[in-house]
Amino acid sequence: MPAPSPSQEVSIRLVVNDRARQIDVHAAETLLGALRDRLGLTGPKEACGEGECGACTVLVDGGPVASCILAAGSTDGRSVRTVEGLAGAGDLTTLQQAFVGHAAVQCGYCTPGVLMVLTALLEEVSEPTEADVRQALAGNICRCTGYQQIVEAALDAARAVAS
């Protein structure tokens, strides 16, 4: 069977924020485009469009990915979590609460992607070091905070969850 043309639509089934979804996407459409334009999930942001800044980061099967360069069709049968899927029933996660407590949010443009990479880190490493947090943030550009408040918030969140 020949590969679909970029304008041809394909149907994919995936789980987005714990909800089974079926959507039609163009063969060349990015996951970011599908999330924002087809599902109305505007948390992931488009900034660089090249997978370099981290603003579009979501978790696919638990791992952080740059949704601006990932083909939506490649997520067929997979699980996707966006920043909208972090807080259940309106309650902030421990990490989100720590961001508020440390004033780790300024303009907010990078915040969804930063929260997603740190969520993945904290789900994988129960007691991360400052170096672990900074390494996780290496693919996320923040021009407002200088990162220190973000690092402190992540470490406090990890301590709060561990206790």
Rank of each mutant, 00 (worst) to 15 (best):
E130W: 10
A158Y: 01
F99M: 01
A103G: 11
K45H: 12
A154L: 04
L92R: 12
G90R: 09
V65T: 07
R159P: 04
L92I: 11
R159L: 10
G62K: 10
V100P: 07
G73T: 06
C144A: 09
T82L: 06
V65C: 03
T94E: 11
G90Q: 14
V60G: 05
Q96T: 12
T94L: 13
A138N: 11
V125T: 15
E127M: 00
D132W: 14
Q149E: 09
S67I: 03
G49T: 13
V60C: 00
E124W: 02
G63M: 04
C107A: 11
D61N: 04
Y109Q: 11
P44V: 07
A72Q: 14
A160Q: 14
D156T: 15
P112W: 04
D132G: 13
A98Q: 00
I150E: 10
A154V: 07
A89K: 13
L86W: 08
A71Q: 13
A87P: 07
L121K: 13
R81Y: 05
Q148E: 15
L121E: 12
V114S: 08
V105S: 02
Q97D: 11
G108N: 01
A72K: 10
G77N: 09
A87E: 09
G88V: 15
L59S: 06
H102A: 06
G51N: 11
